[in-house]
Write a protein that binds this DNA or RNA. Sequence first.
DNA 1: TTACGTAAATGAACCGGTTCATGTTGTGGT
DNA 2: ACCACAACATGAACCGGTTCATTTACGTAA
Lengths: 331, 331
Amino acid sequence: MSTIRDVAKESGLSTGTISKALSDPKSVSPKSLSKVQAAITKLNYKPNMLSQKFRNKQSKTIVILVPDIANLFFAQVISGIEHVVHKHGFSVLLGDTNGEKQREQEYIKMVETRLADGLVNLCPHMDQGSILPLENVVAVSAGGCENTPYPSVRIDNVGASEKVVDYLISLGHRRIGVISGLEDNPHSIDRLKGYRNSIEKAGIKFEPELIYGGDFNFWSGLSASEYFYRLKDKMPTALFCMNDDMAISAMKGMLNNGLKIPEDISITGFDDLQVSRYVNPALTTISQPAQKIGEKSAELLLQLLEGKNPNQTEYVLPYDFIIRESTSAIK
Amino acid sequence: MSTIRDVAKESGLSTGTISKALSDPKSVSPKSLSKVQAAITKLNYKPNMLSQKFRNKQSKTIVILVPDIANLFFAQVISGIEHVVHKHGFSVLLGDTNGEKQREQEYIKMVETRLADGLVNLCPHMDQGSILPLENVVAVSAGGCENTPYPSVRIDNVGASEKVVDYLISLGHRRIGVISGLEDNPHSIDRLKGYRNSIEKAGIKFEPELIYGGDFNFWSGLSASEYFYRLKDKMPTALFCMNDDMAISAMKGMLNNGLKIPEDISITGFDDLQVSRYVNPALTTISQPAQKIGEKSAELLLQLLEGKNPNQTEYVLPYDFIIRESTSAIK
DNA sequence: TTACGTAAATGAACCGGTTCATGTTGTGGT
DNA sequence: ACCACAACATGAACCGGTTCATTTACGTAA
């Protein structure tokens, strides 16, 4: 493996000249430049980027903390981040935390130890449990919740949920079930808040038996649908699901029980996965601009890394409420 | 930011001792160890990993080349890779190529320039266009195709496709349409080969008008279903789709046209996305062990990086043919 | 007391880039 | 022929770890 000194020797120039030829060609005479070029080609020289980054004290890398890559919403956010930072010459290190605090810790340490310059956190902030914010760790939260104590990009989960439930109520529904995410998950909390706001406005009493505690995964939508189906005549006429995964599997569960959607029960989701418009019936849901959230949070992080004080450190992006076929007026 | 020399001064020891205390504590006396500990705490010292990696000439990083992270199949493979390499102290750099050759180039360069030790390639190998294999770049292909010219982990796409089409034929179908991926995509090629093998065995003539050229994305399933629907009495009685995305949207398209699935037309997919069992009707498909493919390819790469010659460099993993509700015997 | 062997600690050199104070060329004006 | 000045080129020092040949400390045996 040849080094810059080999190139210097081969070309009859000094290391300083080679270095400049590579980083700032116009500060080197054309004659030298071509000598350098020749030597590089002859030796098949590839600069050692580790050395470069070490010397420059910049890793040009960010880490993305994500609970689970194999979740389309996160994957889309990541995609947005990747495209933006790539344009600025940064790479992204994937930090799949698998929901484990310890792994989160490890990945955060990467920025403390200079392996990364900053971090985008897709794991929703837990009030007590969160490690971030941390001094010396430039971080931004993406797709999180209200009151995140460091720069963030998200949608208004409370408002969006309220809008969905308002709509169901406008269709005549009064008994509206909820398939929730994990109880202490901030998204669950925000979205439940929206639900309560809405029914309260309509003068509907909150009934705990209408709240099913899921976990944002497919299977929990299925078991939720069983739970609600068994309520028989006390079964809700509409289901507000806290994400599309659970909504889609709840639909499946209800269909398996011989119910018709939306005639017998209306179902709504949250996220607007790519499939959601293709399932049958197509799902009424909130569309989070996942890619945009990724892009915006990347831009914000890059600004913070450049040391310029961004004029805004909390972005609440617009969402869309998309009415499709899985909801209808009560019979 | 404090360095190892600061710690040395603070603790009254030498840099060599600090270094050993951190990397091999039992080679340092307990007394010194506690001094080191105290100094580190006092100074809040964090070793500069860039320096460490530079000196050790090992980045302990691999890059994953992926055409599109926001695709569940790839996301699952990535997840598998991440979990395995993480156990071995490696991190993963995400290389979203966006289908662009130039980006692929850039990410490959990362291993040539020492930023990464090796690479897992999820972009299917193109006969002419592929850059890999490359000298000095340790790489393995994951989820690719037959005849990949470097170590690979995949399933038997030809055999799996053959199995699906055999099954359709066994149900009495003779006019079987295909929604293909991009024409020059190796997966398309392998899967079409399976289709042809199967119909040939059954003595069915190959008809080009039954092949619709899609692109593996949702929308192309929809337009394919329009195309086939317009064939009217020449419409196939079954559709072999080269992935689940297209199968699901094709189902949607057919349903929108008032057809019943599987009564009027049977539809099969490929990949077994998480949603595929939840769509209505549930999709008959090939299940690729995405997570496993990721894990195996990571193990293979790590072996190659350790310099030990693996006894096997091509793994063909088993797939599952999952029969659900979207297929039935011809009327 | 001396000699010897082991365990622990030392610190200079090194990895491969970048930087910058200093040195060298070359051009043009008088 | 001489000087001024810009344009390039030089190469030693540096970044912050790790390594290893060497030195120091200390316990044991003769």
